[in-house]
Computed example of a mutant assay.
Amino acid sequence: MQFEHLGARPRIHPDAVVAPTAVVSGDVTIGAGCQVLHGAVLTAEGGPVTLGEHVIVMENALVRATSAHAVRIGDHTLIGTLASVAGATLAEEVFLASGARVFNGARLGRGCEVRINAIVLRQTVLAEGTVVPIGWVAVGDPARLFSPDRYEQIGAAQPELDFPGYVFGVDRETPDLMVQLTERYAISLARHADDRRVD
């Protein structure tokens, strides 16, 4: 399903294949030879999503751009089932295994691998060829890799873990943080009320 969002329609190369149950919304460009499988969602929430050539987005994966962070996926990249990319840049020949998560502002170099259920935190930079092992967490610029049981070291490696401020523009110390966050986010998401299906 394709939707016009904020006046922008998806642009899909005629050689690309998008499954009928995939959702492609807004300013999304899909290059030649791409495959977007059933249940995948590619959504441009104020910023563009660009897939190069021969990118594969597997079942139920999520690729989401924001107004602050575009998404760029390099050629010959594979995004596995249930993986997600939010506002990040992936170079060519990157592999995200099932359940991998890549967050806002992250940049992955050519040939990186993020294995099953591994996480690349916000603003993290992976050098070319970096492998994040199964379930591990990558953080920082340059990235440091931690096993998931090293929670305190993961937190300490981040300059300021301010997810609400960085992603939503709400100060973490706001007394009614979740009220502010959800109300602001709801206003942003309400822009979908005027979306039109275009396929």
Rank of each mutant, 00 (worst) to 15 (best):
V41I: 08
T21W: 02
L62Y: 11
G47A: 12
E128W: 04
V36D: 02
V85P: 10
L37T: 00
F168V: 02
V139N: 10
V167R: 04
T43V: 12
F103K: 02
I154M: 11
T50L: 04
R191P: 01
Y151I: 13
A190L: 04
V114P: 09
G46H: 06
T77M: 01
I154N: 14
L145I: 03
S84D: 13
V63P: 04
P159G: 07
D75L: 06
A157M: 09
Y151S: 15
A40S: 10
V125N: 09
V125H: 13
E160I: 03
I30L: 04
L37A: 11
V179C: 14
F168Y: 10
V102M: 00
R122N: 14
T29S: 12
I56V: 15
L121P: 15
T81Q: 05
L82F: 10
G26L: 03
L161G: 13
L82W: 07
G155M: 11
Q153I: 03
M58C: 13
T124F: 10
R115H: 13
V36C: 11
S67K: 15
Q2L: 12
Y151T: 09
A157D: 06
E173W: 07
H54A: 14
A65V: 00
T66P: 00
A127R: 12
I73M: 08
S188C: 14
A32G: 14
H54W: 05
L108T: 06
L126H: 07
